[in-house]
Design a protein around this nucleic acid. Structure first.
Lengths: 207, 207
DNA sequence: TGCAACATCACATATTCATGTCGTTGTTAA
DNA sequence: TTAACAACGACATGAATATGTGATGTTGCA
């Protein structure tokens, strides 16, 4: 029997979820509150939950900030966001803070149950459109369609590895002056003027 | 009616999947081949598929490399990986190359169908343990107590922003020589010897 | 066929960076 | 109360970087 806690300021949803979860024969939900603050004042009175379902748009401390606090207070607890907020910033901040799941609020009750099971078994669960945004995080470059030539991209690769002009030249077996030449073109195209900016852009997926 | 193609060298699975998909009344599968190369020679003979289910461990061109080729050949096509390979490198390379889904091979047929529907509707689908690895990508193991001092970390921040020593000095309101001094310590502690490497390390979450 | 884009190399100059050695404070832990 | 360390600063030198001008050869496309 796993213990679930709910932090959700929409009272109707909170009660519905609580009842639904307690109806499951492998889950129990004793803690059901409306804010991070309330949760923290309640949490010592009873058993620590195994998993917390948490809204983002909460009064006081937001759900995103809350993740860090919750996981610090209860090491090893899993946190699944349940929210209407599907903008990329909220998604990524939640994941960075340690959320193991991210569901949008129109998710059906049995999909929520399925997601809870998945997360309790060491997996992660996301609503399809959330997963899409996460997946697309890995392919942002395609949008701008790197305007750099193949050779220029090879040069950038070298820079990103932290190589000096000389080493890039050696690696590509060209002269250092040619490296310089390409870098001038790269800087112009990317509108930057230092190695540092190129590396930053690259790591941010902007190349 | 959406068209699905299968690239899978396990003949048994290939045939099973093909039959199962053709059994669905909203899907059809006419293209079912055993390698990227074979797919490319077949693809012009019939209608372009809307979605391709692709293995990774293929003879010849690997599935990971294949994604780029497929998407170039058929702009807008969705690619879902179906593989036994669940190591992080394969996952991230696939996503970087443009895969919209990543399923492990023990996924049930109806879960595969569900994933196809999700992807065709603009979402993304991943097996739970794959999703976990993707989610964990965003929470790199807490940097083991950054051995850098607070001030040194501020300097690093400046470098990562692409600032010159002069600008870092101005920003922190200290002399450029002091910036130099700190950077010497930083390089020693991080065991590097250029701005580029510091920035790279920072972006890789190694600071 | 000729232009545009790419890749190659050279020379020059000013700035920035990497690194060393040498100091002064102030705080902290043995 | 030393010792260790953090933060601050100065001076100096050689290497690397940023940027400009200019030239030659290839390739793809209109």
């Amino acid at each position: 029997m796993k213990k679930i806690a709910i932090i959700e300021d929409d009272k109707e949803l909170k009660v519905l979820l609580e009842k639904y979860l307690n109806f499951q024969n492998d889950l129990s939900c004793e803690t059901s509150v409306e804010s991070i603050e309330e949760f923290l004042s309640e949490v010592n009175k009873q058993d620590k939950p195994d998993l917390i379902i948490c809204d983002i748009g909460l009064p006081g401390v937001s759900g995103i900030e809350g993740i860090k606090i919750l996981k610090e207070k209860i090491p090893g607890v899993e946190v699944v966001m349940l929210t209407v907020d599907d903008n990329s910033e909220s998604i990524f901040k939640s994941l960075c803070n340690g959320a193991s799941g991210y569901l949008v609020k129109n998710t059906s009750l049995d999909k929520i149950k399925e997601s809870i099971d998945i997360v309790l078994n060491g997996g992660s669960a996301m609503s399809p459109n959330i997963a899409r945004k996460v997946v697309e995080y890995f392919t942002p470059a395609k949008h701008v369609e790197s305007e750099l030539s193949d050779r220029e991209n090879e040069i950038v690769e070298g820079l990103v590895e932290g190589l000096s002009y000389k080493l890039v030249a050696h690696k590509l077996d060209i002269s250092i002056d040619t490296v310089r030449h390409h870098i001038k073109s790269i800087y112009r195209k990317l509108n930057v003027n230092s190695k540092a900016e190129v590396i930053a852009k690259s790591y941010k997926g902007q190349i």
